[in-house]
Design a protein around this nucleic acid. Structure first.
Lengths: 134, 134
DNA sequence: CCTAACCCTAACGTTAACGTAAATCAATTT
DNA sequence: AAATTGATTTACGTTAACGTTAGGGTTAGG
């Protein structure tokens, strides 16, 4: 659907289906101030910004971030800091998040290497079995 | 300390301090079958393998894995599969985990890009303020 | 002998992120 | 008109990963 400004809108059910989550979750995110959809009477109307946010929420969760941290990132992104102090605080925040991401990159790299080993051992065993078997 | 085989051992307190967690957590991991330390009477004695596992647990948690998934990875690694079926199941598992890690890599890349943007906007603002201020 | 610093078990409490159930309302469909 | 479909609020239930408290044992030092 579209609203009065000809923007695309979504119902809670549509978004739930698209992102494979329940309406309950979407309402919960709103309760936690991660979303703030319009209303038509009682029913919620989601715009494209809300949809993008849902995507970001999923991404954050895949990285093991809590909803509070994700909200924090939203505020970082939306923030219109105007004082030097605020701006410097923001730079600190971005650097902090960056550190976490770097750590995760390291972690992933190491885990991948281990998976390589497991897989190699596994393939060796398989080859061995086939040799014996034939 | 060292045990009868001249291997290095640790008390629960030492490991707790080293990894900056509580003894409670370490005992909980044992309850969940992620650790299985020796005992001397009632008190737990941890060897180097246990220490390594704790490191892996931390890493898994940083990536947002549940303790059950981490245990799963341990089993993957320790497993001495011998049948073709088991081996193929293991290869499936490693590929599955790999897919998750690839997804996380993508997620991290995108988040990093966004942080870049936030930071850039921030620096521009700061430069602007300083120009005005001087 | 007493205290401090460790260790232990047992068991209830807590927080995050929803799940689930009940009761209601509005718009279609049959 | 009755029933289905999809929305709403309210509120209690659930799971994971510990935190916390209570009660008790043992070894080193003063």
């Amino acid at each position: 659907m579209t609203n009065q400004n000809n923007e695309v809108t979504y119902s809670i059910g549509e978004l739930a289906k698209e992102f494979d989550i329940t309406p309950r979750s979407i309402r919960f995110y709103e309760e936690q101030d991660l979303l703030s959809p319009e209303r038509t009477g009682q029913t919620r109307i989601y715009c494209n910004k809300d949809r993008v946010r849902l995507k970001l929420i999923q991404r954050g969760k895949r990285l093991g971030f809590s909803l509070a941290e994700i909200k924090n990132l939203f505020e970082l992104y939306d923030s219109n800091a105007n004082s030097m102090l605020q701006l410097e605080a923001m730079l600190q925040m971005t650097e902090q998040k960056r550190a976490i991401l770097r750590q995760q990159l390291d972690d992933i790299q190491m885990l991948m290497n281990e998976l390589d080993e497991v897989e190699k051992r596994c393939r060796d065993e398989l080859a061995d079995l086939q040799k014996r078997g034939s």
